[in-house]
Design a protein around this nucleic acid. Sequence first.
DNA 1: TTAACATTCCAATAATCATTGGAATGATTA
DNA 2: TAATCATTCCAATGATTATTGGAATGTTAA
Lengths: 216, 216
Amino acid sequence: MKSARKIKDLLYEQVARIGKVFSSPKRLELIELLCQGEKTVETLAKEASISVKLTSAHLRELRMAQLVETERQGKNIYYRLVNKSVADLWVQIHTLAEERLIELQLSLQKIATQPNDLVPSDRDSLMKAARKGEVVVLDVRPSEEYLNAHLPFARSIPLEELRQRLGELPKDRAIVAYCRGPYCLLAVDAVALLQQEGYSAVHLRDGVAEWDAAIR
Amino acid sequence: MKSARKIKDLLYEQVARIGKVFSSPKRLELIELLCQGEKTVETLAKEASISVKLTSAHLRELRMAQLVETERQGKNIYYRLVNKSVADLWVQIHTLAEERLIELQLSLQKIATQPNDLVPSDRDSLMKAARKGEVVVLDVRPSEEYLNAHLPFARSIPLEELRQRLGELPKDRAIVAYCRGPYCLLAVDAVALLQQEGYSAVHLRDGVAEWDAAIR
DNA sequence: TTAACATTCCAATAATCATTGGAATGATTA
DNA sequence: TAATCATTCCAATGATTATTGGAATGTTAA
């Protein structure tokens, strides 16, 4: 019979398999991307600015930890998170990181569009205003990601199309732009563009994963 | 000005600092121990069956990630988790691991006292029964840990003293024993002893951290 | 002040991990 | 059927990490 020590070592080792997945910056970025919906290796590689091979290797880690599943559609293999717990864990880890690491707080402050960031506590009031149509909640991610899931009342104008489609947005109401989460810079650019063009725009740091985890 | 890519790399790197902490089996074990209350390096080393030096090195990682804080009391330096978020994250990670990793499920089944384990869904009914005094909730951890925090209505008999203090327990009511969490074997031993001595005992896998995270 | 003690820091080694190139797989299309 | 394409597997590299021994730090007690 095995000693208690060996049994325990085995147990913690298994849990560490999950922890290891969240210990690499690139894997975290891939997880955040997968929070936006299923994607191919190529898409993930491009978005994360790494080679397809390296992406594949990281996805292999995710697969071996049973946190993603794959599905073949034609030539491509699509990856997706197995369930919401994985997204929740990502949110909880980066939230704790933001809470504890001053360096991260400073970096985030730098990319913020000055004091125009909405803080999470505004969630309730934001929804009320959105329901009444007092503000426009704007999703600037690629449209597939919007179609997969988006915030309540949100409209989709991908950042790439925003300049051409400015006319669709009202100038007399606040525009709240969001993207994939606090580390995605799409909404930062969108807010900069909107403000430059005379819109009153603010940046919501939440992505869909953060929003879902918060309204639990 | 830095490129968007470099900024993002920096952000994910910071978050990965937190993830790294949870990627080592021994560090996870230390975190679980710290969930029971503040402890000295020596105590932690003994409980985790590793050298004091290695313990110190792991604690250094935890300190650099700002997840623990230290306080000197006389000769000893006490370590404690900075706040409940850290314990919550530990619970969420091992819960996800148990959900996804079949190997872990199997290992846990092996150490279970046959079908005598209480599952988390029993929490509400357990509390009702405990309130009415129909069951005895028994904390078998060292008494300092019980004093630091324990489940509602729980009584403390450390495993070491259990054999001598069996007389304090009723034979006509169910005894629900718990310890530090699902990977701690104290309650397993306690249940085995109690059953052997004719008590009707069951094992609750939750520790205080799991309980607190669940009743949120 | 010194002795005793707990703990950390530094340096070194072995183990593990990230990353890349080249070959192999497996499905689709012609 | 062969050609094409996306993706994975294998092997090799350098870069981290875990772990250990020895020295150093800082506190208490005499």
